Every structure is written in structure tokens, then in C-alpha cells.
Amino acid sequence: MTASTALPGRRRRAASSTEVRHAVRRLPLLACIIVGLVVLALLMVVSASVGPLRIPLVDVAHIVGAQLGAIDSAKLSQRDVSVVWQLRVPRVLMGVLVGAALAISGAALQSLFNNPLADPGIIGVSGGASAGAVGVIVLAGSSTTWLLPIGAFLAGLAVTGLIYVLARPGRNTGTSRMLLVGIAIGSGCQALTGFFTFIADDQQLQTLTFWQMGSLAKVIWPQFWATIPIFAIGLFIVLLNYRALDVLTLGEREAQHLGLNVRRSRLIIIIATALLTGAAVAFAGAIGFVGLVVPHIVRIIVGPGHRGLLPISAIAGAILIVAADCGSRVVAPPAEVPIGLFTAAVGAPFFLFLVVRMKKSSW
């Protein structure tokens, strides 16, 4: 075959790949960000208004504006101000941070392991962080504002590193191996969590039972301010490494040929995702499937490039958690349904669909 006959084939392949990219990237990135932020802002206001005590949306806006010093607060009910500002606003803001952290961690882990099923909950990272946080709650008592994220981060980092060592990409390790490693490590973390639950007292046991299914009910302002630096550092590191994630999806050998320091990039991403997952689990409990579902949906909207995938995933994850938290207060008032039940109801069918789809085509 001559070069002239081979060239049209190459052009056809290049044209087909270009058509695929245009077919995947359906919406402009800036438009997606603006629409996502508007939807998130409206949902945050709605979430702050619903619950056992319903407060009109206009009053919620007035209360927030009064607390920020924008309007006069003389005509506002002190009861409504306390409920909105002291109880609901911090949990809504924490829901934004937790959703963004879990979704962006899932997107980064899927590229890091080059595996579509990678998720902090499925591969055991959330289980490790949960075991660390439960250990802090049981062993350290009530003084856990800063110890919770530290314990969850260290445990999540250890689990992520162990999974990476045992199911490292580029060594003929497929999806099944990574899932088996994650299941084994997750079972060990679950056993450790069960041990801490067994030795917990009655008050700690009530906290752990609800906390392990995911909840934002007990979030207060000091916890929110304590997590701001953790989430900010983790999100900044992952977003800063979007080019490295693009290259890592090509494979370890190809990434090295392109000049990427693969070991350094993987270490940085592992630490950042463990930091985000640990902080999310520490203050919101075990919320699964967010990191699995959101990145795949976002890829359909903006394409696989991490320059758009990461920020849109963060916004979409925040929307999902805020919506789930809002629903948890509406389904069976005055009781609250754990957030993890909502995300599992959405994520479990999607996970099964993804597994079946992988039999027919590669990621």
C-alpha cells in the first residue's frame, strides 16, 4: 500500500474522530457553567425554604440579605431568621461543597485508573474515609471538628494508595481486578467500622447509625468554616491538573512519551481526591454513587475533555446533593430520610446499566 492510498484512510479516521468530538460536545462550556450556577442558586434558595417549617422564598431571600447587611432586618421573624440562617443555610452550603467534591473526585479517579467504574464509594475510598471518621467519633468523643476531616483524609489516602498499588493501570489490570480489590478493601474497612460501632456508647451509636447513611442535618457554621480550606485546596489541585488527567486517559506509556511525569501527577491527584473524599465523608457521611453518575452524564453534555468535565461535574454534583437534601426533608416530615438513600436509588440502576453497557463496547 502506498502513502497516497493510506492517506485517505487516515483522513477518514481523523474526520470520524472529529465528528465524534463534535457529537459529544453539544453545549458550549460557558453556557453550561452559567446555566448550572443559576439552577444551583435557585435550588439553594428552595432548599433553605422547605422543611418541617416552611418559609416563603421571599422571606428566605430577605433573611439572607439582612444577614449580609444588604437590607433592614427589623420586620423579620426571629424564629425564621434562626431556622434559615443557623440551621438551613450552613447545611445547604455544605451540600454544595460535598456534592462538588464527590463528583470531581469521581471524574478524576475514572481518569486516574482509566476505568469508567471508578468511584470513591464503589472502589472503597469512601469506606476507608468512613472508617477513619467513625474511629475519630468513637475514640475522640465530641472534640472532632478538626480531627474528623484529618482522620477521614488519612484513611481515605491510605485506601486510595493501596488500591492504586494493587490495581495499577497499565499492568494488564482491567475493571474486574480493580473492583475486586476495591470490594476486598471496602469489606475490611466495613469490618473496622463495625468494630468501632460495636464499642460505641448509646449516644455515639445513634449518631453513627444515621451518619453512615449520609446526612447534613447536624452541620453548623463552625463545621462549614472548618471545611472551606480543605475543599478549596483539593478542588484547586484537581482543577489545576486537568491537562494531566487528559493525558492519563491515553495510558501510562503514552503519557510518558508526551513528557508527563506520570508518577508525580498520579501522586498529586491521589492526595487531592483523598482530601476531598475524606472531608466530604467526615461531615456528610457515606454518600455513594455521586462520583459515578455525575461525570458520565456530564461527558454526554460537554465531552470528555477535563477542562470542561471537572467544573461542570462539580456544579452538577452540588445540584444533586442539594436536591437530595431538599428531598430528604420533604418525603416524610418532620423526620429526615438519609441522603444516601436518594443517591443510591439513582446510582444503583445507573451502575448496573453501565456494567451491562461495558459488555458491548469499551469506554
Rank of each mutant, 00 (worst) to 15 (best):
P149L: 03
I71R: 14
V136D: 05
V138M: 05
I163A: 10
L180V: 15
T145N: 14
V125I: 05
V92H: 13
V136M: 07
H62Y: 09
L57V: 12
I123Q: 12
F153Y: 13
L102N: 13
L166T: 04
V92L: 14
Q78G: 13
S176H: 09
V83E: 08
R79E: 14
I137Q: 05
G69R: 08
A74V: 00
V60S: 02
L97Q: 14
L109V: 09
S142H: 08
R168A: 01
L180S: 15
V92G: 14
L154Q: 12
W146P: 12
L97Y: 09
A129P: 02
L97N: 15
G99I: 12
Q78F: 06
H62V: 11
L154T: 15
A167L: 10
Q86I: 04
N172D: 14
L154D: 11
G151K: 09
V134K: 04
M178V: 03
G182I: 10
G170N: 00
V181D: 13
N115C: 09
A61C: 14
W85Y: 14
I122E: 05
V138S: 10
G141K: 01
V138Y: 01
V165C: 01
D80A: 11
G127I: 06
S176D: 15
S126V: 01
S143P: 00
T175F: 04
V125H: 01
D72W: 11
K75L: 07
G121H: 00
V60F: 00
V125Q: 02
A103I: 00
A155P: 07
T173N: 14
V138Q: 09
R79F: 15
P169S: 12
V98K: 15
G95M: 02
S142T: 14
P116E: 00
A131T: 11
G141W: 08
G132N: 09
T160F: 03
D80F: 12
P149W: 03
L148S: 10
A107K: 11
G127A: 14
F113T: 10
P149H: 03
I163Y: 12
A103S: 13
M94K: 04
G99K: 07
S126E: 03
A70S: 08
Q78Y: 09
R91V: 03
D59I: 05
L68N: 10
L157W: 02
M178K: 08
A103Q: 13
T175D: 08
A118R: 07
G151F: 00
L147M: 04
A167C: 10
L97G: 15
L76I: 10
